[in-house]
Design a protein around this nucleic acid. Structure first.
Lengths: 226, 226
DNA sequence: ACGCAAACTTGCGTGCGCGCACTTTTCTGG
DNA sequence: CCAGAAAAGTGCGCGCACGCAAGTTTGCGT
């Protein structure tokens, strides 16, 4: 239903997209990002270079996509999955934290690569924009479909994305400075904390929107923001 | 203090920047944006093409810059200028609305041009990102310099920027659809309304931050409007 | 089963963004 | 007033992004 636009077409497309980003990441890891031409990626994925940028509008985007995956859909799904009585703020915060807390054992070196190269870092941060629309729909579904709510949902989703961006910026700058300063590469385990801290200031807005819907009461609480 | 980096250097730089964006807009209006090569802009401004993209990283950016001007600084200044007793939300909202309510009599046709071309529209919307940092500082100045507040200010500034982006998106899509649908080009006079509507959902968050400010009374010192 | 329409791919050409090394201009200390 | 340093401007070259106009594949109706 949701993904059922067409059968074979969409399937092949997805396969190509995945082949491209996988190849991009693999090559970037093997030779270093600067020694990877677009043509190489295209060749590795078995398509023409022109087709490559039918899928990605920059080389960085392709590499990063291998790591970000389908995060946008997962965040939205996570929000939708939370029971309706937990309060919008908590639902969103936990959903986001869950999805960005990547126990990416496999993609750990990929992240190291990304955090190292400025261009990749920018693309990585920029990729969070993708959650806006799915998240807006998820929030709208919780808050109500009224035109008024629709707009609020969009704004809140954009704000959440912005907050995530800020958190990632902090995380990355902290990482780079720790690398620069000491020899120690802090694994930056505090991303979840940074995310919570960045999202906390938005909680009042989210809760206000939540409260303004049809009329549910909610209990605050267990997340304990302080 | 703010502009006191160097004397002649900065001055010339600013002049060049302005010459470039002015030339870019003028040429775009004269021949249509697609008939303007980067070389033309550079030549019109009296610099080399290479120098041109030391200032702007895309052709669209230069054209748009002629219209957006120094908006980022003005928004921040406007926020700082509001008396301390109006509440952060109102201060921000009014400051933003004021700056985006461009009675641009001169730049009206420029806006028409921008709203017409998709690439320019995107650049125009993207330009709002520039207000983030100045606005963050302005908010931080109001809320308090504590590390905790600093972060909140950054998030809130980013959220405000995101909300503005949403409002502009709506405004632009409304414009384009009205052009497409009827023959009437709605002058889209409702931008201020859209901005207020987009910023409204953030008011609770802004006020919450305002209320949580650290040390009670404060004085702005230099920026104080007396 | 077949053919038409829509979607996707591809080759080509053009302008552009930007790293690099170098020249010219501006700033600073003596 | 004059070096030497710092910063801005410039020329060159390389990939790359993307519009365009084919060619090719997939899907749908009859």
């Amino acid at each position: 239903m949701t993904t059922r636009r067409t059968g074979l077409r969409e399937q092949k497309k997805q396969a190509t997209r995945d082949a491209l980003r996988t190849a991009a990441l693999r090559l970037a890891l093997e030779r270093g990002p600067d020694n990877v031409r677009v043509d190489d990626i295209a060749e590795a994925a078995g398509v023409s270079p022109r087709t490559y940028n039918n899928y990605f509008s920059s080389r960085e985007q392709a590499i990063v996509a291998a790591v970000t995956g389908e995060r946008e859909a997962r965040v939205a799904a996570a929000v939708a999955a939370r029971p309706a009585d937990v309060g919008l703020a908590d639902a969103v915060i936990e959903a986001v934290v869950d999805q960005y807390t990547a126990p990416d054992a496999a993609g750990r070196d990929a992240l190291l690569l990304i955090t190292t190269r400025p261009a990749l870092r920018e693309a990585f941060v920029e990729a969070t924009t993708a959650i806006e629309h799915p998240l807006a729909e998820a929030i709208a579904a919780r808050v109500g479909d009224g035109g008024e709510h629709q707009h609020a949902a969009r704004v809140l989703a954009a704000s959440v994305a912005a907050a995530v961006r800020v958190a990632l910026d902090q995380w990355l700058s902290a990482t780079v400075s720790s690398v620069t300063a000491g020899g120690l590469v802090v694994p930056s385990g505090s991303l979840p904390d940074l995310l919570r801290a960045a999202l906390a200031p938005l909680a009042p807005a989210l809760d206000a929107a939540d409260r303004a819907r049809g009329g549910g009461t909610r209990d605050d609480g267990p997340a304990g923001r302080a």
